[in-house]
Amino acid sequence: MKKFAKSRFNFLSLALLALSASANAQQYDLLDLSAQPLNNEVCATCHGGAGVGNASVGGPSLAGLEPWYLRKQLENFRAGIRGTQKEYIPGNEMQASVARLSDEEISELVDHISNWEAVAPKPRIEGDASKGQALYAACAACHGASGDGNEALGAPGLAGRNDWYMFRQLKLFQSGFRGKHPEDTAGQLMRPAAQALENDEAINDVLAYINTL
């Protein structure tokens, strides 16, 4: 182990030194909220550094999401098609976060997030992947045999997504908190599919299989 005596401060970039001047001057014009830059710092608070997801606050990984799906969900949240049920707090938070976005801002966000490097999430759920493989046959019809999704059917890729998040979404689909809205056509298709999974064990099994994809 390294001796403590040696100093190890090592900045990769000296640009850091230039930051301190602007740092204290965080001034906002009264009521001019448009002066705030739209940036990924807001996303990263919930969705984790580099968009890897954070189960503690219910923010799923964004890195690696298909741009079309990202856009659709941002629009759904903005329109209140998703996230308006008070019972599901993370959805609520997401809804409020994007409610004021313009079309251009959504496009910027989609472009920006699409550039994030996909990171394979750590599995959090334990299940029987071999049992899950049999159950997945029904999912494969829309989401693809290798879980890479199908835009024409509105079915996102599942491989590389957070299993804990998919668990929650399956439960939300089952209970009707997601997929019940008349304008959520893809969600309406997903609802009966989620209900076909009989219990939490079945959900865990199918997610364990998806984790292998």
Binding site: K6, R8, N10, F11, L12, A15, L16
Partner: peptide, 9 residues
């Protein structure tokens, strides 16, 4: 938009 790395004791 820029990444930095810092190492410390």
């Amino acid at each position: 938009g820029m990444k930095y790395k810092i190492e410390a004791d």
